[in-house]
Each structure stands twice: as structure tokens, then as C-alpha cells.
């Protein structure tokens, strides 16, 4: 009788979706990507690569403060050691690890697990 509104999958129930080569991602910047969820459904995400290495973060591309799909076009920031993306529209910061808006605790965007395997960037979604 549990109806969970939001699903954060446990590691086992994750499906990893291939996005692009790590080299496609510009260093210290964001891009938008399309997360293909099958059955003609997809979701826009923003990918940020920290430095030239293989630390990659994936969050929603939708900026909740403006309603536009633009977060991948924002500047990558480090705020007290925490990576964050700045919305290019009204400049709010979203922490990449937990999706929280720095300026407004109540606003949160979805965060997806991301990893690099054999030079490819993969993003995890819930199985099924």
C-alpha cells in the first residue's frame, strides 16, 4: 500500500544509459543531453564535467525558476567546494550533488547518477 511519488533507485535496480564519449564534454562546462527512456519517452538532462577528468554530474535540464530547458547552458561553479550549475536565466545556483537551489532551499531539481565507463558517459535511471 505504498505509493511513492519520487523514485530514487537502489544501485541494483539501475539501468545505465549510454550518452556520449567523455571527450565530447567540454572541460569545466555544461551541456544538454537527451535521456532516452524507451517507448518514445525521453527527458532532458544537463551534464557537467568537472575539470578535464572523469567526474561528471547529471541533473535536470529544466530550470524550475524560469520553466525553460536551459540548465546545461549555465556556468559550472564551485561554491565552497560543492559543484553547482548557475541558471543562465535568473542565475540561481543548483548544487549538482543533491539538486538543491542554493538561493531557495525549497526548490530542488532531480539528480541522476552518472559515471564514466571505457571513455563513455553513462547516466543511471530506475529499472522499469
Amino acid at each position: 500500500m505504498t505509493a511513492s511519488p519520487v523514485k530514487i533507485p537502489p544501485a541494483a535496480a539501475r539501468r545505465w544509459i549510454d550518452i556520449c564519449a567523455l571527450d565530447d564534454l567540454p572541460p569545466d562546462a555544461g551541456v544538454a543531453a537527451l535521456l532516452d527512456l524507451g517507448e518514445r519517452s525521453s527527458r532532458q538532462i544537463a551534464l557537467f564535467r568537472i575539470g578535464e577528468g572523469d567526474e561528471v554530474h547529471a541533473v535536470d535540464n529544466l530550470d524550475p525558476c524560469s520553466g525553460a530547458n536551459v540548465l546545461g547552458r549555465g556556468i559550472l561553479c564551485q561554491i565552497q567546494g560543492e559543484p553547482a550549475g548557475a541558471s543562465p536565466i535568473y542565475k540561481q545556483h543548483f548544487r549538482l550533488r543533491d539538486g538543491r537551489c542554493v538561493e531557495d532551499e525549497g526548490v530542488i531539481i532531480a539528480v541522476f547518477p552518472a559515471r564514466v565507463r571505457d571513455g563513455r558517459v553513462e547516466v543511471g535511471v530506475a529499472e522499469g
Binding site: M1, T2, A3, S4, P5, V6, K7, I8, P64, C65, S66, G67, D98, G99, R100, G106, V107, I108, A110, V111
Partner: peptide
């Protein structure tokens, strides 16, 4: 222009992480 999602007060996964059952729509 702020959609329903932006108005949410619940951090995604908060209820699950803490084992809170929410009977939505009931």
C-alpha cells in the same frame, strides 16, 4: 510560470530515504 514541480516542498527521495509512507490521492 512556476510549474507544479517547482512548488514542491519535498526534496526528491526524502520520504523514501526515511521510510515514510505517503498515500498519495487517498
Amino acid at each position: 510560470g512556476r510549474g507544479a514541480a517547482a512548488l514542491s516542498l519535498v526534496e526528491p527521495g526524502f520520504y523514501e530515504r526515511h521510510g515514510v509512507r505517503v498515500l498519495v490521492g487517498d
